[in-house]
Design a protein around this nucleic acid. Structure first.
Length: 132
DNA sequence: CGGTTGACTCGCG
DNA sequence: TCGCGAGCCAACC
């Protein structure tokens, strides 16, 4: 948990913070972790974590979805489970199997964002990701 | 060490 | 508005 955590550890830490019945997109997690264009890596890390879940056994991985509010885990066979887990905590899907991000996207508190000490450039990109 | 991969995104037509 | 292709980049092996 030190300042020299690698990208992977920062990603896992962020995901760990997502409140129940809220979601974040891969891109936002990437930005909050300090690398706005590494959204694919976020997926890769969570996938990897899934294969060998030992580090953060209670990681709420289901709370990370794509930019459209859709589930990206169908092709690895986790789609049904992810949807089920989300619905169990109160998230619902629209007629196109998309989560209304207007309602369920989690915007971390300013205080929390401040603690991440992100460069202005990233903070700027973050803002655009929250207004839908 | 370097090529490959991919739970993604963005921009252009 | 909507696909689709190209770009992306840390992790993995």
């Amino acid at each position: 948990m030190s300042a020299e955590d690698n990208f992977r550890d920062r990603v896992l830490k962020i995901v760990h913070l997502i409140p129940r019945a809220k979601v974040l997109t891969y891109g936002i997690v990437a930005s909050l972790s300090g690398s706005p264009r590494a959204s694919r890596i976020v997926g890769g890390i969570l996938h990897q974590w899934g294969l060998q879940n030992s580090l953060y056994p209670d990681l709420p991985w289901q709370r990370v979805v794509n930019q459209k509010g859709g589930i990206s885990t169908h092709r690895i066979g986790m789609g049904d489970l992810q949807k089920k887990l989300l619905e169990e905590e109160g998230v619902f899907f629209d007629h196109e199997e998309k989560i209304p991000l207007k309602k369920f996207l989690w915007k971390p508190s300013d205080k929390m964002i401040k603690q991440l000490a992100l460069p202005d450039e990233i903070l700027c990109k973050l803002e655009t990701k929250f207004d839908l």
